[in-house]
Nucleic acid binder design. Structure first.
Lengths: 238, 238
DNA sequence: TGGTCTAAACTGGTCTGGCCAATTTCTATA
DNA sequence: TATAGAAATTGGCCAGACCAGTTTAGACCA
């Protein structure tokens, strides 16, 4: 009848907590090396297996990075580490693949509008780089997957809004997880790849000319055709 | 000089990935029990310690829950659990409080546009409820914090896009974390609360009438005034 | 027959000790 | 002095064992 302690605390959790505190409090800075597992075990008075489980947990939490033969190092936390769990949560709720594309449309049109107002020389340069990358990919028959994502990401980055950038990171992770396969078939369709490259150019020009409305429309149009093409591909399945 | 494989894959990571896929793909539903560690080890042809590290990792990722003496169970996870870590990561990168509001503007205007096209009777009813809640709060001098958030959330829900809804959840968590204090002063300002209630009505009417453009504009205007008022309040600080 | 209590089986938690492979450090040699 | 090779260190993985709870099944009683 002891309601105070709901579940027995596991040993490795204590270890996790101790190390976590050191990191959060700054005693252990990113890049610092932890004591070797064997020494940690001795120092904390637990077995190496307990220490190992703790370290495994901390790696999963994104706080550590372990190099075999070398040691465990404190890691700099980035948003990417949260995307996997985030994706697995959202994926279960998503009924329709197009929800992701639609969300992208919302996010990217808004970002493009801001980008048109704020893009700096370096942003435009980056956009142009990825634009050229994609054209090259198309011309040489390569996969445009990477250059396409990069371009879209650049648009959002050009908005200079860190929150939007992070949300876009989430969406990108979601996309990879969700429709990697169907995407393949889409990008293999040559006419569409060419149309895409063209539409990317339109987006780029709109942002460069600083016209928010035009930029918004260009992105909306681009994703509209993407969604339509996805629908068509899906239609041929059934 | 082998650039293809940056780091050797650890055994337990494979196990993590296998189990994760089963969960994400739905083969393992929340509440399901996994095989005992010893059986898993045998089945996968690895040692029990490898399995244990994999399970430890999955627990840290929030996908499993383990009860000593009983077994490992697939956990039902909600997005809320990830908001805290997500917020702590994003907060470090956010330079400007207004990035959050701006992101909300992007997300909510897009959602409102969709809501105008898709809102069903139940959605409109819900919106109307929260509208009335807020009016009551204003009239009786109560805090409008809750009813305000609820209304905005309802707009996004009426878009019937689960991805947008989840992103909005993230933003809401971020808001709470970031500007709880300044927000208080804002909602204490009576004239603004009244204007807000009025603008909410406009949003509601626009969605009800099924006019996407009008809905978009109404939300944009509403958040514009919010942002301006925030700026004004911040200006008085310094 | 139906319910209860107990003992065995099972399950996760932890430990010990060992071997391997990669990395780092040290050392002897050119 | 520079470098190649040996030795020590470190994490990855394994086998087997014991403990402390939980679950299960069977014996026993009403």
């Amino acid at each position: 009848m002891d309601l105070t302690r709901k579940k027995r605390t596991r040993l490795y959790e204590d270890v996790v907590e101790q190390i976590r505190r050191l990191i959060v409090e700054g005693t252990l800075a990113p890049g610092d090396q932890l004591l070797p597992e064997r020494q940690l075990a001795e120092k904390l008075g637990v077995s190496r297996s307990a220490v190992r489980e703790a370290l495994t947990s901390l790696v999963s939490l994104g706080l550590l990075e372990i190099t075999p033969g070398s040691g465990a190092y404190v890691k700099e936390i980035k948003i990417d580490q949260l995307i996997d769990p985030l994706a697995s949560i959202m994926l279960k709720e998503i009924n329709d693949v197009f929800d992701i594309l639609e969300a992208r449309q919302v996010l990217e049109t808004g970002s493009a509008r801001l980008a048109a107002q704020r893009a700096e020389r370096t942003d435009l340069y980056e956009l142009h780089e990825f634009l050229r990358d994609m054209e090259n990919d198309v011309n040489e028959g390569r996969d445009t997957d990477e250059s396409d994502s990069q371009f879209h990401f650049s648009v959002v980055r050009a908005s200079h809004n860190t929150v939007l950038i992070n949300l876009m990171t989430v969406l990108m992770g979601l996309m990879k997880e969700y429709y990697g396969p169907s995407r393949k078939r889409l990008v293999e369709n040559r006419p569409y790849r060419e149309m895409w490259a063209l539409q990317h150019t339109e987006i780029y020009e709109a942002i460069k000319s600083g016209d928010p409305e035009q930029a918004t429309d260009a992105v909306a149009k681009h994703l509209d055709t993407t969604i339509k093409e996805f629908r068509r591909l899906q239609g041929t399945d059934e």
